[in-house]
């Protein structure tokens, strides 16, 4: 209850500061007050633009992210398991991760054209590296004594992997998946601003149009929506899993 109050107070304070800043700003166009932005959000929600764009974006995000997991998790396991994979795939993962994913946009446009495949490619390249690295790191950090103890009780091979290594690596792997989710958002927004797919306007494209039309209320409204969606997904997707892990490991409390 107190934490909820603290959060509400914090949001209120931020809105207040925004209000003051916009009244001091030289131009209402450059920094519209919260009321204008909320009014735009209301209009866009009413005419369906917001829901349609959010749906386009979330669909790309979900497909791209799941693709990233499907490619990244096995590669991460491979890197943890075989030195050769670590020296090759692992190295590539570090390289890909250090490259901002928008750098893939020119290439994606030429390879795939301005379409969904280009979008997915950019999201994939933005997420897969961090998933590979986090998975490999998570598995390598599993204390070897767990596997040893399991083997003395008759566990071996695949069983040791599925019932010891995988659950033991979950805290690190889930942290990596959460980070990759954030990377997926970043990649997709860059991709949507850069790659325009006709008839499929995502939130990134709304940002782009907002800039073209000097509609700062639209730009800020979309940013607000992205932030809200980000927080919502963090709470819905990751918070319960993290809470379950913290409960088991006895972690996550303020020291």
């Amino acid at each position: 209850m107190r934490r909820l109050a603290a959060r509400a107070a914090f949001v209120g304070l931020a809105l207040g500061a925004w209000q003051v800043a916009s009244s001091l700003a030289t131009s209402r166009v450059l920094l519209p007050p919260p009321a204008d932005v909320l009014a735009w959000v209301g209009r866009a929600a009413a005419d369906g633009t917001l829901a349609a764009s959010a749906l386009v974006t979330l669909r790309r995000l979900a497909v791209g992210y799941l693709l990233g997991l499907a490619v990244g998790l096995p590669l991460g396991v491979l890197c943890a398991r075989w030195r050769l994979a670590e020296d090759t795939v692992g190295l590539a993962a570090v390289g890909v991760q250090s490259l901002p994913s928008v750098c893939w946009a020119p290439l994606a446009m030429l390879w795939f054209g301005a379409n969904e495949r280009a979008m997915l490619f950019i999201v994939l390249m933005g997420t897969v590296g961090s998933i590979v690295l986090a998975t490999a790191h998570g598995i390598r950090s599993v204390p070897s004594i767990y596997a040893r103890a399991a083997r003395t009780m008759g566990s071996k091979g695949l069983h040791t992997w599925t019932s010891v290594i995988v659950p033991a690596s979950m805290p690190a792997v889930v942290a990596g998946m959460k980070q990759a989710w954030a990377f997926a958002w970043r990649s997709l927004m860059a991709a949507e601003i850069y790659v325009v797919v006709a008839g499929h306007a995502g939130l990134g494209l709304l940002l782009h149009y907002g800039r073209e039309f000097h509609a700062m209320d639209q730009v800020l409204g979309v940013i607000l929506l992205i932030v809200t969606l980000g927080v919502a997904f963090d709470r819905l997707l990751f918070a319960p899993v993290e809470a379950a892990l913290h409960r088991r490991w006895g972690t996550g409390r303020t020291p």
Binding site: I145, A149, T152, M153, G154, P167, A168, W249
Partner: peptide, 29 residues
């Protein structure tokens, strides 16, 4: 020739699995 449950082991560090409950740990073998 290899480990087997006829020869189980206890370690200095308990080596219990944090993702399992107390009962879940005892059930493992």
């Amino acid at each position: 020739v290899g480990p087997g449950r006829e020869r189980t082991m206890m370690f200095q560090e308990h080596a219990l699995f944090p993702w399992r409950t107390v009962e879940g740990n005892v059930r493992f073998g």
